[in-house]
Nucleic acid binder design. Structure first.
Lengths: 228, 228
DNA sequence: TGTACATCAGTGAACGCGCGTTCACTGATGTAC
DNA sequence: TGTACATCAGTGAACGCGCGTTCACTGATGTAC
């Protein structure tokens, strides 16, 4: 049952392929990802990669899953570093970790949240769960605050129709709409700041993007009663 | 001084090239833009396009300038349709037009705000002015409200360092930091919602994105005293 | 108004490069007896 | 422990396709006299 040398080697090559794929994305962007390029760098012929992935699309899927997972783990780890009762502190830690991850893993962030790669369609059953996992961290904290009566409702009209994710996802089961709404508001806000910064649209306007980001997030926490 | 037939023809071909380029982007994404593809569709050989653009990059730049200009004009026209004194109404009209433009011109929006095209670097002296022009619409309205004493300051720490664009841009001269800050907050918020929606990340969660969007924008206007 | 010359849109061939995927194969590693 | 066979990572050649850019050229349109 212990892994044979061949199995170990295979495992290592799989990791090496993804490592070089990420490296290539960093240089040429996600659309610059090519099997030929990876093979060249790894010192194999291109057809050899077909022993590891059925094709380019399967490799992209693997990279996307890895990226979402890495982001989610970063968020979870940031959350676990703050006292459980300090909801505002936990959320701040998580969203700051989110931003830091995006800045440090530009390619990965671009891969999952940038322009979709044309000709590639992600298989949702594989990418959805790790994608939701990160969001679930924030929803989980909000839910705890909500149950403790510490979350002030954010106003929204009854016409807003949200899809409440069932317990089959990573989200806590039976999520109140108020909690999901606040989660979505926070997510769209942080996403806007990060994307504009990452793609260079605000660099001439905002000289201290992290302070700006932090203030926006604190503002939101204040408006739902988690600060002050 | 009147245009010769040849000049008219040239003008039409220039327009036709950009039209087909946009069509191609709609199908294959911005990275799928190719001179060969355009030439094929227009019924010319590829080298013929060099009579019109010095190369692929110059064409991309032209498309980017067109996109920013089209967005700015849409915003300006939305603004002019509301009574000048109704600052909240004007801003709502402008941001709703912004979102509608993004949804109706997905390719153009992706081109200017999506993942930067690898290997291409936009000449800022050409793209910056039309990019700022749209933002200036919102800043202009905010400035009027500010001068009329109707804009409540949005709280932010003194450490935030904003670059106040000088009068050489399209921005109104000597913009108060409070106005710019609110403008930036609004921009990052609307951008987050639009990007997430456009790239399909919220479609399973938010079933009525426009209502959500409108509510977020109204919430902001309320928090700076322009509504209620 | 008619002719001579200049302009310039567009061609066709070529260059050198990239890509993903298939296929029959070699040869080393692993397994069963 | 040694041999016979099965597995499977990796090769090399080929297929058919894409791309941007250059160059010498043709032939129609426009201009000067």
């Amino acid at each position: 049952m212990s892994p044979t040398p061949r199995e170990k080697q295979r495992e290592q090559t799989l990791i090496e392929i993804k490592r070089l794929a990420r490296l290539q994305m960093a240089e040429l962007g996600p659309s610059g990802l090519s099997l030929n390029g990876i093979a060249r760098q790894i010192g194999l012929t291109t057809p050899a990669l077909y022993r590891y992935y059925a094709g380019r699309d399967e490799l992209i899927t693997a990279l996307i899953v890895d990226a979402f997972t890495s982001l989610a783990e970063t968020m979870e780890s940031a959350d676990s570093g703050v006292a459980a009762g300090d909801h505002a502190g936990r959320i701040m830690a998580v969203v700051l970790a989110y931003r830091a991850w995006a800045m440090e893993n530009k390619e990965d962030f671009t891969l999952i949240y940038g322009t979709p790669i044309s000709g590639y369609h992600a298989p949702e059953e594989l990418t959805q769960p790790p994608a939701r996992r990160g969001f679930a961290v924030i929803l989980g904290i909000l839910l705890e605050a909500y149950r403790g009566g510490k979350l002030r409702a954010y106003p929204y009209p009854s016409e807003v129709s949200l899809a409440l994710p069932g317990p089959e996802g990573n989200e806590p089961e039976s999520l109140p709409a108020d909690v999901l709404y606040i989660g979505l508001v926070g997510w769209t806000r942080l996403h806007g700041m990060i994307v504009l910064e990452l793609f260079g649209h605000t660099q001439t306007l905002i000289r201290s993007p992290e302070v700006f980001y932090r203030n926006e997030m604190e503002h939101l926490l204040r408006s739902v009663g988690l600060i002050e």
